[in-house]
Amino acid sequence: MEVRTIKVFTTVDNINLHTQVVDMSMTYGQQFGPTYLDGADVTKIKPHNSHEGKTFYVLPNDDTLRVEAFEYYHTTDPSFLGRYMSALNHTKKWKYPQVNGLTSIKWADNNCYLATALLTLQQIELKFNPPALQDAYYRARAGEAANFCALILAYCNKTVGELGDVRETMSYLFQHANLDSCKRVLNVVCKTCGQQQTTLKGVEAVMYMGTLSYEQFKKGVQIPCTCGKQATKYLVQQESPFVMMSAPPAQYELKHGTFTCASEYTGNYQCGHYKHITSKETLYCIDGALLTKSSEYKGPITDVFYKENSYTTTIK
């Protein structure tokens, strides 16, 4: 009895394709271990004539594949690729409408935090270190965002349907971005203890939790000093293409032309909904596939993004 075979390709990165001759009487799992086709788990399936010449994702289970996976995804987590594939199996079914010149995501599976993050990423200057993220990001900007969303979920250790947080998501993504040249110098002034300067680099240099107003941050924000008295913390120097200011959701007025974009969060910790506000020729609110415009805006804002380049204080 002759062994019926077909020729397929296996890959971990969709760049390096490895030619395989597979036995049609055995499952993919018996031949390769966990195997995925377009995100779908085909591990328990036997090869079919229609699979001839198709590319299958496999887990990096030998040295060659491990090197290829690390170079593309910059992670050695053995569960990463499987999590990416199972997320992709959902995100490829989502709709990605162009809204006001940006790629958004039609609401499904509690994905409003991903839509808000995706919209924000198209408006701030950011370059990702893992080629996987950078490639998928370019495709997302062009309207094909399924891979990018699935990668975000995998890097953030999230599953489809789980509630997510924009600030946490951005923080994970910033860790995989090139923020080497970003720098922030802060000064804390206390009447009792004097003053202390701190220099922050990388992710810490672009994120701040405690106030939404970048102007206020430049002037000074009140913080408790270690001595128990009130101290003032203010920005001395900022070198970065953008800054992200966050605070627990509270009524906040966004003035046209003073910011790049913002995240609105309605609801409580267990259950809520994100919308995205962007400042173009007027203010726009993007909620999944829905767009509304207004000249002014007041609502429960939790993150505001500002364009920056270089700032030095005039406070002496």
Rank of each mutant, 00 (worst) to 15 (best):
Y297M: 08
Y269W: 15
V185L: 02
R66Y: 07
E125C: 00
H256K: 12
S263P: 05
A177M: 12
Y252S: 07
L59C: 00
I315E: 15
N309M: 09
T211Q: 06
T192N: 11
L121V: 09
G210W: 01
S79I: 09
T103H: 12
Y57C: 08
M170L: 11
K92E: 07
R66F: 13
K7P: 10
M209C: 15
H90L: 09
F128H: 07
Y252G: 10
L81C: 05
Y172S: 13
V160T: 06
G33S: 05
Q175H: 13
S263Q: 07
F217V: 12
N268R: 06
H256A: 12
S50A: 11
Y96G: 11
T302E: 08
F128I: 05
D62E: 12
T116N: 13
T282Y: 13
K46C: 11
Q222Y: 02
K95E: 15
D180M: 07
L133K: 10
T11R: 04
K7A: 15
T120G: 05
I277C: 04
F80Q: 04
V203L: 10
P78T: 07
I15E: 06
Y73N: 05
C112W: 06
T159W: 10
Q230S: 12
S279Q: 07
S294L: 15
A142G: 14
E68D: 08
R66Q: 13
T5I: 12
P60H: 03
A140R: 07
R167Y: 01
A154E: 05
L283G: 03
D180E: 12
C112H: 02
V8Y: 04
Y57I: 11
R83N: 13
G272C: 00
Q123G: 04
T192L: 05
A231V: 06
Y274V: 00
K229C: 09
V189F: 06
G53Y: 11
Q222T: 12
T91M: 05
T232M: 14
R167S: 05
Y306T: 04
V3I: 11
A146G: 08
F174N: 01
F128A: 03
T91R: 06
L114G: 08
A177S: 09
E215I: 08
T5C: 13
F305I: 12
N157M: 09
L118Q: 02
A146Y: 04
C271H: 13
K229Q: 13
Y138G: 12
C190I: 02
S50K: 13
A117Y: 08
K316S: 15
I105R: 04
A117S: 07
C225L: 04
K106C: 14
L200N: 02
F305Y: 08
L59T: 12
T232Q: 07
Y172A: 11
G101K: 03
D303M: 05
T314F: 14
C261V: 03
T192E: 08
L235H: 06
N309L: 12
Y265T: 01
F32L: 14
R139C: 10
T258C: 08
L179N: 01
D63G: 06
D23V: 12
C112I: 07
T312A: 10
E71H: 13
D303C: 09
G143P: 07
L153E: 00
N16Y: 06
E281C: 08
T313S: 14
Q195L: 13
F80L: 02
T169C: 11
E281F: 02
C261I: 00
L235A: 04
T226L: 10
C149Q: 08
T27F: 15
T35F: 01
L283D: 01
T292S: 10
N129T: 08
F148D: 00
E281V: 03
L102E: 02
Y214L: 12
F305P: 01
E264Q: 02
K191W: 02
K54F: 13
Q31H: 14
V221E: 04
G164F: 02
Q195P: 08
H90C: 14
Q197A: 12
V304W: 04
S181H: 15
H18P: 11
M85A: 05
K127D: 10
C227P: 00
Y274T: 11
T55E: 08
K127L: 07
V58G: 01
T314M: 14
L163K: 12
L59P: 05
D135K: 06
N111M: 09
T75S: 12
S294K: 07
G202M: 06
K95S: 15
A140S: 09
V42D: 02
F128Y: 06
I6T: 12
D77C: 13
E296S: 14
E68Y: 06
L118W: 04
N61E: 08
L290V: 14
H176W: 15
Q270I: 15
G29A: 07
E281I: 10
D77I: 05
G53W: 11
G164H: 08
E204C: 01
K106D: 13
G29H: 09
I152L: 04
G220P: 08
L119V: 05
V67S: 14
P34G: 09
V166H: 09
Q30L: 12
I301N: 02
E215L: 05
T278N: 08
A177R: 02
N157A: 03
V42Y: 13
F305R: 02
A289M: 05
T120W: 11
L126R: 06
E264I: 11
L126K: 04
K95D: 15
E2V: 09
N147W: 08
P34Y: 11
Q230M: 15
A177Q: 05
Q251W: 11
F70Q: 11
L212G: 04
E281W: 08
D165E: 11
T10Y: 11
Q216F: 04
L133E: 06
Q195N: 12
W94C: 05
L235I: 03
T19I: 11
Y306F: 09
K44P: 12
Y234K: 10
N111F: 09
Q31F: 12
Y113G: 10
T27S: 11
S279W: 05
C227S: 02
L88E: 06
V203G: 04
P47M: 03
A69N: 09
A145W: 08
F174H: 03
V8T: 07
C190K: 05
T120A: 14
K46T: 15
V99F: 14
L37G: 07
A40M: 14
T159D: 09
D41C: 11
H176G: 02
S213E: 02
T312W: 03
E144G: 06
T282W: 07
Q30H: 13
Y138P: 11
G39F: 10
Y284M: 12
M209G: 13
Q122W: 01
A231Q: 08
Y306D: 04
K293T: 13
F242D: 01
Y96H: 07
F70V: 10
I223W: 03
C227H: 00
F148W: 06
T91L: 03
M24P: 14
T198S: 09
Q238S: 04
G228N: 01
D38V: 11
I124M: 01
Y297C: 03
A205H: 01
S171A: 13
A250R: 11
E253H: 11
L81H: 11
E253W: 14
C285K: 09
D109S: 03
L200W: 00
E71K: 04
V188F: 07
L235S: 01
I223C: 15
C149V: 13
V67D: 14
A136K: 04
Y208S: 04
A40R: 11
A132T: 04
S246L: 05
Y73V: 06
L163M: 09
E204I: 07
A117M: 06
T192H: 12
M26G: 14
R4G: 13
T266P: 01
V166K: 04
F305C: 00
L186G: 04
P60D: 00
F148Q: 08
R83Q: 00
I315G: 15
Q134S: 10
Y208V: 12
E168L: 15
M24I: 13
G210S: 00
V188A: 06
K233C: 14
N129P: 05
K307A: 14
Y84R: 05
I286Y: 06
E2C: 10
D303G: 00
V304C: 00
I105L: 03
E125F: 03
C193W: 00
T35I: 10
D41I: 10
Y252N: 02
V160S: 02
S310L: 15
H74N: 13
I277Y: 01
K54E: 11
K280E: 09
A146E: 09
D63K: 07
E204S: 11
D165N: 15
E168D: 10
D135A: 08
F70L: 15
D287R: 01
E239V: 12
A150T: 05
R4C: 13
F56E: 07
P131K: 07
